[in-house]
């Protein structure tokens, strides 16, 4: 997994509420497209018109926001399905950080597993940032610093943020979680040995 330490980039506002993972990447595209191409199909129902042309009115199609790596979003961003391809699609579009008043729980987890930073902030803070991003269209000088937990806007405003310590460590180190967990192999084996005696009905079930 790619590390996340500090990022200086353009921020794009997408202030719709309850953006779901189906709209981020449709079942059609996630089944038929290779991972490397998912970015092109992110938000397809909004991003493209019926004739396949780009919709100039879609927030992220506007000049100044097309190369954004920071997404500022409305409440409950990434709700719905557990499809990790939603995160792959966003990362394929170039995003590395998302800021919203709240995220779908599974989506936020999937972000961390893929080296994307999902920051929750109070709604008024997010609205301020969206406003700042609007004003600063094309300005790449939003900085997200995970080492100090501070967002800096182009005007120099600083906004502190919090993130679960375990997630922060994983992002900073770009850790391979499976490798790390396997270091607890003995504890897992000991748990199962104990548990087999305490709850034998959990293990080795077959149909008579």
């Amino acid at each position: 997994m790619e590390k996340f330490t500090q990022l200086t980039a353009t921020a794009a506002p997408l202030m719709r509420q309850n953006v779901d993972t189906d709209v981020i990447i449709s079942i059609d595209n996630l089944m038929s497209q290779p991972r490397a191409k998912l970015g092109y199909f992110a938000f397809a129902p909004w991003r493209f018109l019926a004739d396949g042309e780009e919709n100039p009115e879609f927030e992220l199609n506007r000049p100044g926001f097309r190369d954004a790596q920071i997404l500022i979003a409305g409440r409950n961003f990434g709700c719905g399905s557990s499809r990790e391809m939603a995160v792959w699609a966003l990362s394929g579009m170039g995003f590395r950080c998302m800021i919203a008043p709240g995220f779908g729980d599974i989506f936020a987890n999937n972000c961390t597993k893929n080296g994307l930073l999902a920051i929750s902030l109070p709604e008024n803070r997010v609205n301020d940032l969206a406003h700042a991003a609007e004003q600063a269209a094309g300005d790449t000088s939003f900085t997200i610093d995970l080492e100090t937990n501070i967002i800096t806007s182009p005007k120099g405003d600083t906004i502190p943020f919090e993130i679960a310590a375990g997630d922060r460590d994983a992002l900073l180190a770009g850790l391979d979680e499976i490798g790390k967990t396997l270091q607890h192999g003995n504890a897992i084996a000991a748990f199962q040995a104990r548990d087999r005696l305490a709850r034998p009905w959990i293990y080795g079930v077959t149909v008579a």
């Binding site: 557990s82 599974i106 987890n109 597993k113 893929n114 499976i178």
Partner: peptide, 10 residues
Amino acid sequence: WGIGSSEVAH
């Protein structure tokens, strides 16, 4: 609860 495919692999 539901998990993403990285967690399924985990």
